[in-house]
Deep mutational scan, measured.
Amino acid sequence: HMTFVALYDYVASGETDLSFKKGERLQIVNNTEGDWWLAHSLTTGRTGYIPSNYVAPSD
């Protein structure tokens, strides 16, 4: 899985979304859904959809 880092805080707007904090590391499970990607937080262990423009590839 690709690892990304959150650029901003995001508060989930629905049950399927994943809240995260700036700097949180996320594994992308599925990024074929356009602007919303299914991600797994390496910080909280939770999985949900995130806005793709809130994250950047982590080196």
Rank of each mutant, 00 (worst) to 15 (best):
H1D: 12
H1P: 15
H1E: 12
H1I: 14
H1G: 14
H1L: 15
H1W: 14
M2T: 13
M2R: 12
M2V: 13
M2W: 08
M2E: 10
T3C: 07
T3D: 08
T3V: 15
F4D: 00
F4Q: 03
F4W: 13
F4E: 01
F4V: 15
F4Y: 15
V5P: 01
V5I: 14
V5R: 04
V5T: 12
A6M: 06
A6N: 01
A6P: 01
A6V: 10
A6T: 06
L7A: 04
L7D: 02
L7Y: 03
L7H: 03
L7K: 06
L7C: 06
L7E: 04
Y8A: 14
Y8M: 11
D9G: 04
D9M: 02
D9C: 04
D9F: 02
D9A: 05
D9K: 02
Y10I: 01
Y10N: 03
Y10G: 01
Y10E: 00
V11G: 05
V11A: 10
V11Y: 14
A12Q: 06
A12M: 04
A12G: 13
S13W: 09
S13I: 13
S13H: 13
S13A: 15
S13E: 12
G14A: 13
G14N: 15
G14K: 14
G14W: 09
G14V: 11
G14F: 09
E15Y: 10
E15A: 08
E15M: 13
E15W: 08
E15C: 06
E15L: 15
E15Q: 11
T16E: 12
T16L: 14
T16W: 15
T16R: 14
T16M: 15
T16I: 09
D17L: 09
L18V: 06
L18H: 02
L18I: 11
L18W: 03
L18Y: 04
L18D: 01
L18E: 02
S19M: 06
S19A: 07
S19H: 04
S19N: 05
S19W: 04
S19C: 04
F20G: 00
F20L: 08
K21G: 07
K21W: 06
K21L: 12
K21F: 09
K22Y: 05
K22Q: 10
K22P: 02
K22F: 05
K22H: 05
K22V: 08
G23H: 04
G23P: 00
G23Y: 05
E24G: 01
E24C: 02
E24Q: 03
E24D: 12
E24W: 02
E24L: 00
R25S: 11
L26V: 05
L26G: 00
L26T: 00
L26H: 00
L26P: 00
Q27L: 15
Q27T: 10
Q27R: 12
I28K: 06
I28V: 14
I28R: 06
I28N: 04
I28Y: 02
I28E: 01
I28F: 03
V29I: 14
V29S: 07
V29R: 07
V29L: 15
V29T: 08
V29M: 15
N30Q: 13
N30Y: 09
N30M: 12
N30S: 14
N31H: 11
N31P: 11
N31Q: 14
T32L: 11
T32A: 14
T32M: 13
T32G: 10
T32D: 13
T32P: 10
T32C: 08
E33R: 09
G34K: 12
G34E: 13
G34S: 13
G34V: 10
D35S: 13
D35H: 15
D35T: 10
W36N: 05
W36D: 03
W36R: 12
W36H: 06
W37S: 03
W37G: 00
W37K: 04
W37I: 07
W37H: 03
L38C: 06
L38M: 08
A39E: 00
A39Q: 00
A39C: 06
A39G: 05
H40R: 15
H40F: 14
H40G: 03
S41F: 01
S41V: 02
S41P: 00
S41C: 04
L42S: 06
L42T: 08
L42H: 07
L42W: 07
L42N: 06
L42C: 07
T43E: 14
T43D: 15
T43V: 12
T43Y: 08
T43K: 08
T43Q: 08
T43I: 13
T43R: 09
T44I: 02
T44M: 03
T44L: 03
T44P: 01
T44V: 02
T44K: 02
T44G: 04
G45L: 06
G45N: 12
G45S: 05
G45T: 03
R46W: 09
R46S: 08
R46I: 08
R46P: 00
R46L: 14
R46Q: 13
R46V: 08
R46Y: 10
T47I: 10
T47R: 10
T47F: 11
T47A: 07
G48N: 02
G48V: 02
G48D: 01
G48T: 01
G48H: 03
Y49N: 05
Y49C: 07
Y49A: 04
Y49F: 14
I50N: 00
I50V: 13
I50E: 00
I50P: 00
P51Q: 06
P51K: 06
P51C: 05
P51Y: 05
S52T: 06
S52D: 02
S52E: 04
S52Y: 08
S52A: 12
S52I: 06
S52P: 07
S52Q: 07
N53L: 10
N53P: 05
N53M: 10
N53S: 15
N53W: 12
Y54M: 12
Y54C: 06
Y54N: 03
V55H: 03
V55C: 04
V55I: 09
V55Y: 04
V55F: 07
V55W: 04
V55D: 02
A56G: 11
A56V: 14
A56L: 10
A56E: 11
A56Y: 10
A56N: 07
P57C: 05
P57R: 07
P57T: 09
P57I: 12
P57S: 08
S58Q: 12
S58H: 15
S58D: 14
S58C: 07
S58T: 13
D59Y: 08
D59E: 14
D59N: 12
D59T: 13
D59R: 02
D59I: 12
